[in-house]
Design a protein around this nucleic acid. Structure first.
Lengths: 123, 123
DNA sequence: CTGCATCCGCGATGATACTG
DNA sequence: CAGTATCATCGCGGATGCAG
């Protein structure tokens, strides 16, 4: 049982801020891409469709700051920087994976519901 | 096994759009609040901290459009409108619950990592 | 290659007032 | 009670240029 004082729905509860980490536009995608593997900066950029350099860097910094991602920079030329999930980040692995699977599995149902809704509200 | 063509990381894949549904700022909180129970509009407003009428209505409409939430309006005075998760919405129940639990359980670790990061990058 | 700095447009969001 | 309408703003996020 979780203490009642820990309420993610309360905007002042710290756990609420923690949840904001995941609700970012790109955070989940980065976490998803890094599951169980190490990727270089450019590999992440290529793997995640439509992300800009700025947002990728910004998201990685935020995830690193929150202890979900570990960064390793090799002082060579050309530079080589690798990113991987920390143990804390890996603890989100199952949830992120499930979320991705849910999105794929229920995509048809969502699209159908959307068409249905739009049709019923257009006339 | 999921077909390779279904890739949430690809911005053009429909499942990517489905994922965006959940990454909204308020969507997860509404889904979390509605798990296994029916709530009135004003109850949702009171339950979710810091949400404005506009955002609550907008989020509910979006969730309804995507088939995750069912709306029932009773034509009485004063008006009474109830919201609950559809079967499709309930299929997200476990994931949303796990996400909330994760946020609460790992909140200390995240806060610690944050302090650590800030301290190491301030000097 | 891996970033950081800067500018800037626009959409998401919030506050407020009003309605059935 | 359960919204809708309008307006103001604020920060996200894209584009570009530059550095180590």
């Amino acid at each position: 049982m979780t203490a009642p004082s820990l309420n993610v729905l309360s905007q002042h509860c710290p756990s609420h801020r923690v949840l904001e980490m995941v609700t970012g536009k790109w955070s989940v995608l980065v976490l998803y891409a890094l599951r169980g593997r190490t990727l270089r900066y450019s590999e992440l950029e290529g793997t995640i469709g439509g992300i800009s350099q700025k947002m990728l860097t910004q998201t990685l910094r935020e995830l690193e700051r929150n202890g979900l991602v570990e960064r390793t920079a090799y002082p060579v030329v050309p530079p080589r920087t690798e990113y991987r999930l920390s143990p804390l980040g890996e603890s989100l692995n199952r949830i992120v994976t499930d979320l991705g699977l849910w999105a794929q599995d229920h995509m048809p149902a969502v699209l159908a519901a959307r068409q249905d809704y739009d049709r019923r509200h257009s006339k």
